[in-house]
Nucleic acid binder design. Structure first.
Length: 410
RNA sequence: GCCCGGAUGGGGUAGCGGCUAUCCUCUGGGACUGUGGAUCCCAGGAGGCGGGUUCGAAUCCCGCUCCGGGCCCCA
């Protein structure tokens, strides 16, 4: 019986891996150029960690299991919680701020569809220790730069949960539910909910107006008319983004309903994907004290790596590939020549099927090699090799020690 | 968890109740033990799984699994 790959997982062919690694490399370079350094946490954690962050309900969407000692563990569904846990455990007295980035696989037990898999990869950053608008500005600029550098067509929406919370503060413990409805753009649900708990018509209209505020920074003026709130944090942030050339839409309906978000929240959408069009999301939050640390502000984002891979069309840079073709009896010589080519930075492949010269050349052609280096008795006697350019078909003899020159010949 | 559509060699397909399951591609070998892409020859390899209907099932029915798309959810 044939074993199939588990639902929602993928195999990646060499071409796909080359593309993914190229994208990954770009993201790392940019993150590192901002002073972020890579961290890594375990693939599984106590399931409690994620329950604390997101509530009991998410257990259904996690891979939860018991180990042999009865510990309840979960494959990580995201990395913000593990990283803050890590911060609380090991780095709470490091110089602030901390700039961390990660690139890891995550697991969620959900129905797979386009752009959604049960094992998927997130590239994200966390900037820990600052509650300044400058921290939010930095991570937004960073995310924007990453996506831009990949040539992705996207929209950036920026919201602020502080503003919404202020507007909903009179609801007390019912505010969270309202936030969720706003985040979902469920206007009807919100309407019913507010009616149910007896909110005045006038207030209801006001909340709906705020939720639908969307546009350039001029909407702050509209918001000021609706709310008695200090918008200067947001205004200073937008000043920085404007001068950095970040294009955004202010959207006060971006709520990311969870309680630990504290201020600015943002999402990047692509118009070229199906139902799963969010490619990056983030914001400022406070989780450290939830995990037993001292209250520490943080801000960060996570990029849906698999989704951006679907959007990016790029050809990875290829090294020159050489197949060393040889006659029977010259295996050792062939291995030696291949090793020389490798030490000059080329890709060198040697037949390991003991095939005829003809088959070896045919294989070289099949794998898209640039050159075939042919080794025969005649050549060996003279300290030479024959080099065949597989594109043009032209062939020439060179001294063996000249082989490294092939790296520039392509 | 829900809805729609699908599943035939490694990949792409034909057959839609009746010979040894079609064709293309592919893979290995040979024609051709000093030269790739062409041609020819030989070989390899398939109806997702389980049950039912039938003299007979890849084909019809049911269940499951997996894939694609959407809903819900999306930390």
């Amino acid at each position: 019986m044939k074993i199939e790959r588990p639902r929602g997982t993928r195999d990646f062919l060499p071409e796909e891996m080359e593309k993914r690694r190229t994208i990954e490399r770009k993201l790392r370079e940019i993150a590192e150029s901002f002073g972020y350094r890579e961290v890594s946490t375990p693939t599984f954690e106590h399931s409690e960690l994620f329950k604390l962050k997101s509530g009991e309900g998410i257990v259904d969407e996690m891979y939860v299991f018991k180990d042999k000692s009865g510990r309840e563990l979960a494959l990580r569904p995201e990395l913000t919680a593990p990283i803050i846990r890590f911060f609380v455990n090991e780095c709470s007295n490091f110089p602030k701020p901390l700039r961390f980035y990660y690139f890891e696989n995550c697991f969620r037990y959900e129905r797979p569809q386009k752009g959604r898999y049960r094992e998927f990869w997130q590239f994200g950053v966390e900037l820990i220790g600052s509650d300044s608008y400058l921290a939010d500005a930095e991570v937004i600029i960073l995310a924007d730069k990453m996506l831009k550098s990949l040539g992705i067509d996207y929209e950036l929406h920026i919201g602020h949960v502080g503003i919404l919370r202020n507007a909903l503060s009179f609801l007390a413990d019912k505010a969270s539910k309202a936030m969720r409805l706003i985040d979902k753009r469920d206007e009807e649900g919100l309407e019913n909910f507010l009616k149910e708990i007896g909110v005045k018509e006038e207030t209801k209209q006001k909340i709906k107006a705020i939720m639908n505020l969307k546009g350039g920074r001029e909407i702050i003026e509209d918001a000021k008319k609706l709310l008695d709130y200090d918008f200067s944090y947001l205004e200073r942030l937008l000043d920085v983004l404007d001068s950095a050339g970040v294009v955004y839409t202010l959207n006060l309906g971006v709520a990311r309903g969870l309680d630990y978000y504290t201020g600015v929240v943002f999402e990047f959408y692509s118009n070229d994907l199906g139902a799963q069009k969010q490619i990056c999301g983030g914001g400022s939050y406070e989780l450290a004290q939830l995990f037993g640390g001292i209250k520490t502000p943080a801000t960060g984002f996570a990029i849906g790596f698999d989704r951006i891979c679907e959007l990016v069309d790029l050809k990875p840079e290829k090294k020159t590939k050489v197949v060393v073709v040889y006659f029977r009896g010259l295996e050792k010589k062939a291995f030696e020549v291949a090793e020389n080519l490798r030490s000059s930075g080329l890709i060198a492949v040697v037949d390991v099927m003991e095939r005829s010269l003809k088959k070896q050349l045919s294989y070289a052609n099949d794998i898209n090699a640039d050159f075939a280096v042919i080794i025969g008795e005649e050549e060996v006697k003279k300290g030479e090799v024959s080099v065949k350019d597989l594109r043009s078909g032209e062939q020439f003899r060179i001294q063996t020690e000249m082989l490294p020159l092939l790296s520039s010949k392509r």
